[in-house]
C-alpha cells in the first residue's frame, strides 16, 4: 500500500501510517532508520532502504531536501506486502530543510533506538545537525563522498561516540582474518605493510588500526587492484600475508604453515548495514582508530 501526501505535516503522516498499519498489521519493529540524502539521490536511497527493510524490520524514514523557495513537506508512505517495516519518504522544501528534526521527532518509534545514515555527503558535526541530534547512532560512508580520504579525516576530526563509518565496516573481514593469523602465530609483530588502490580510504583506516594496536610502523603502498590489495605483517618467524588474488578470494600465509586460500569478498551494502544495525552501542575501537588517524594526519 502506497500513500502519497502533498503539502502535509507530521501529524497527517502519523495518522495515515496508523490507519495503514491497522489494515496490514505490521508490528515488532525494533528501530527507526533515518536516511538523509540529497534530492537527486532520492530514488537510489529509497531502493537501498527497501532492500534493507526486508532484512531489518524497522521504520525507515528517507529524508531529502530541495532548494525551492517556499517551504513545504511532501510525503510518501509505504507499508505491507513485501516489507516487514514501514517506509516513509519525506521531501523537505525551502526553509524546512533546517528543521528536519521537528518533522522526524513525532515519527520515531517509541523508546526504540534511532539510527541516521548519510549514504553520501554528511554534515561536519553529525551530532549537532538537526537530524543527527535525534540519533543514538550515526552512520556515514566516506566512500560515498567526492573526496573519500578527506571525508574520512573530517569524520575522524569530528568524531563523537555513536558515530561510525561504513569504511570501517568494510574492513571487518580483513581484521578478523588478521586477528586469527596472530592467534595462530603468537609472535610479536615488528612492522607492517598495506597495499591498496591509490588513495583508498579503508586502507588508511586499516593501517591506522594496525599501527594503533600493534604499536609499529605500518607502511602504505599503491597497488593495481581496487580496494585493499594486501596486508603484510613482519614477525621474527616470518611474514603474515593476506593478499586478495581475485574478487572474493585471498591467499593467507602464516609462518610455519602452508599457504591457504580463503574467501574474502567485497561486501554489498546490505551486509554492511546489517552489521551496523546489529549493535547500537558506541564502537570504542573505531573511536581509538579515529584518534590515531587524526594524530597521524597532524604529524604529517
Amino acid at each position: 500500500m502506497i500513500i502519497e501526501l502533498t503539502d502535509t505535516s507530521s501529524r497527517e503522516v502519523a495518522t495515515a501510517l496508523t490507519n495503514a498499519k491497522r489494515t496490514t498489521g505490521a508490528s515488532g519493529l525494533v528501530l527507526t532508520l533515518i536516511i538523509a540524502t540529497p534530492a537527486e539521490n532520492f530514488d537510489a536511497a529509497l531502493e537501498a532502504a527497501k532492500t534493507s527493510a526486508t532484512a531489518h524490520p524497522s521504520r525507515v524514514i528517507v529524508v531529502t531536501y530541495s532548494d525551492e523557495a517556499s517551504s513545504r513537506l511532501d510525503a510518501t508512505i509505504e507499508v505491507g506486502e513485501d516489507m516487514p517495516g514501514d517506509l516513509i519518504g519525506l521531501k523537505l522544501h525551502g526553509e524546512l530543510r533546517y528543521h528536519g528534526d521537528s518533522i522526524c521527532l513525532p515519527l520515531l518509534l517509541p523508546d526504540s533506538p534511532t539510527i541516521v545514515w548519510w549514504p553520501t555527503e554528511a554534515p561536519d558535526r553529525l551530532v549537532d545537525s538537526p537530524i543527527g541530534r535525534l540519533a543514538d547512532r550515526r552512520i556515514t560512508d566516506a566512500a560515498g563522498c567526492h573526496d573519500p580520504q578527506g571525508a574520512l579525516l573530517r569524520r575522524a576530526r569530528n568524531h563523537t561516540p555513536g558515530d561510525t563509518d561504513l569504511t570501517w565496516t568494510r574492513l571487518t573481514r580483513w581484521r578478523a582474518l588478521l586477528a586469527a593469523a596472530l592467534d595462530q602465530t603468537g609472535a610479536p609483530v615488528t612492522g607492517g605493510h598495506v597495499v591498496s588502490a591509490p588513495d583508498n580510504a579503508p586502507a588508511t583506516l586499516l593501517a591506522a588500526w594496525l599501527s594503533d594496536r600493534l604499536q609499529v610502523q605500518v607502511e602504505r603502498a599503491d597497488g593495481e587492484h581496487p580496494g585493499v590489495n594486501e596486508v603484510r605483517l613482519f614477525t621474527d618467524e616470518g611474514d603474515i600475508t593476506l593478499r586478495r588474488v581475485a574478487e572474493g578470494t585471498a591467499l593467507y600465509q602464516v609462518p610455519h604453515q602452508p599457504q591457504r586460500t580463503v574467501a574474502l569478498r567485497r561486501r554489498p551494502l546490505t551486509d554492511l548495514l546489517t552489521e551496523e544495525l546489529q549493535r547500537v552501542d558506541a564502537d570504542e575501537v573505531f573511536e581509538a582508530v579515529t584518534r590515531r588517524l587524526v594524530a597521524d594526519a597532524e604529524g604529517n
Partner: peptide, 16 residues
C-alpha cells in the same frame, strides 16, 4: 593477541 580487544565486538572468534 594485540589485535583482539573485548570491546571490539565486530570481530568474530575464528576457530584455529
Amino acid at each position: 593477541n594485540p589485535l583482539r580487544d573485548p570491546l571490539d565486538r565486530r570481530l568474530p572468534r575464528i576457530a584455529g
